[in-house]
């Protein structure tokens, strides 16, 4: 029993924070995100004996959390945005400015459809490979790659559409 308890505490210690971040980016509300994480671990505890391979714990917890999120928001699925296929940034000058504020980027990430956001979070935050993301999200690898590509392109597009005010000011000044 103590092994079960110890194992659970290790799971909490290892994954609670990143699961919260994952939940937050999915549901966009801190309190709901915590509820999702709490429910995820509650369900994990009840079913912890079903987890045969400890190495699978991370994917298992994400799966539980995603199901809980879907259950909570099944009536409020966000609409997917229409994506322009030719969003590739052709010129280096169009690359986002490195000094773009974190807060602004967070707002843009928040606006990304979850279909694009999730693969990106799994890749960047959880260190998943394309194949692992495909398995986790039950998608084809090509679909995952497309979504990763589009996620970054959409972020860049949003950043280009909403340049920081100081950049606007300096460009206006330069144009005079």
């Amino acid at each position: 029993m103590h092994n079960k308890q110890d194992f659970f505490e290790k799971l909490v210690s290892a994954y609670a924070k990143d699961l919260y971040r994952y939940a937050y980016w999915l549901c966009k509300q801190p309190t709901v995100a915590e509820d999702l994480v709490q429910e995820t671990f509650a369900r994990a505890w009840k079913a912890i004996e079903n987890l045969k391979d400890e190495k699978a714990a991370k994917a298992w917890l994400i799966t539980i959390l995603r199901r809980e999120n879907a259950r909570m928001y099944e009536k409020y699925q966000p609409q997917l945005l229409e994506i322009d296929e030719s969003l590739v940034a052709e010129e280096v000058s169009h690359e986002p400015l490195p000094q773009l504020e974190k807060q602004q980027l967070q707002q843009f990430i928040m606006q990304l459809p979850n279909d694009y956001k999730e693969p990106m979070i799994l890749q960047i935050m959880w260190g998943y490979s394309g194949e692992e993301i495909a398995t986790q999200l039950d998608l084809k690898l090509a679909t995952v790659n497309t979504r990763l590509f589009r996620a970054r392109q959409q972020l860049k597009q949003m950043m280009l559409s909403h340049p920081k005010q100081e950049n606007l000011a300096s460009s206006k000044k330069g144009g005079q």
Binding site: V37, Q38, P96, K102
Partner: peptide
């Protein structure tokens, strides 16, 4: 560099005492 920016942006603060509340 952009990827690092995204990584930093994703790394939001976690509520105080989250792990304790889960336990």
């Amino acid at each position: 560099s952009f990827n690092s920016q995204i990584e930093r942006a994703l790394d939001i603060d976690v509520p105080e005492g989250l792990e304790a509340r889960i336990l």
